[in-house]
Design a protein around this nucleic acid. Sequence first.
DNA 1: TGAGGTTACGCCTATCGTAATAATG
DNA 2: CATTATTACGATAGGCGTAACCTCA
Lengths: 91, 91
Amino acid sequence: MSLAQIEYFVAVAQRGNVGRAARELRVAQPAVSRQIRRLEDELGATLFQRTPRGMVLSQAGEAFLAHARDILQRVENAREALKERDQQRSS
Amino acid sequence: MSLAQIEYFVAVAQRGNVGRAARELRVAQPAVSRQIRRLEDELGATLFQRTPRGMVLSQAGEAFLAHARDILQRVENAREALKERDQQRSS
DNA sequence: TGAGGTTACGCCTATCGTAATAATG
DNA sequence: CATTATTACGATAGGCGTAACCTCA
């Protein structure tokens, strides 16, 4: 599991569509498709049901989404914490 | 920032020593040294003071450590959540 | 000079993008 | 047949390990 995979997953979950998620992430469609599949393999769970209209979160996907957002938020927090420290130091 | 970098960072912080952290992680010393340095570059902060006796957390490093542990814990939580879901489904 | 961290370098794996290939309503 | 996802494939980048190097008490 990588942070990129988690970002890709959240983007697809939000858009319900690999193509739009890829555009948002400024990356090509297959890159997203592949990483989602790798993530599913590693977790041993199907996160989306594939339809010709797009990707729909499975129950496992729903469960994972909350955790995924949480992780990304914490990473952002960690970055912010250092940034704020730095600003204080220079003031 | 990658999950591996965060793991390496926590290991070095705990051991106070790149070499021992590397052994614990079952990886060679330079791999750890490099990733710590990359992490510092990306964050724009010095996380450790280097001494000939080992690595000592800087103030920024102390601040980051709590976040780093938090992130790894959340990743573990996410994995566990799916594992438990799977067990329930099969019972 | 010994313990530790870092740099150099070659290799290997992972990821990407483009292009081609399904699948489905 | 149009839309969407996936697979093939060649190219690139990132990460690792070994070996050499640096630094400081």
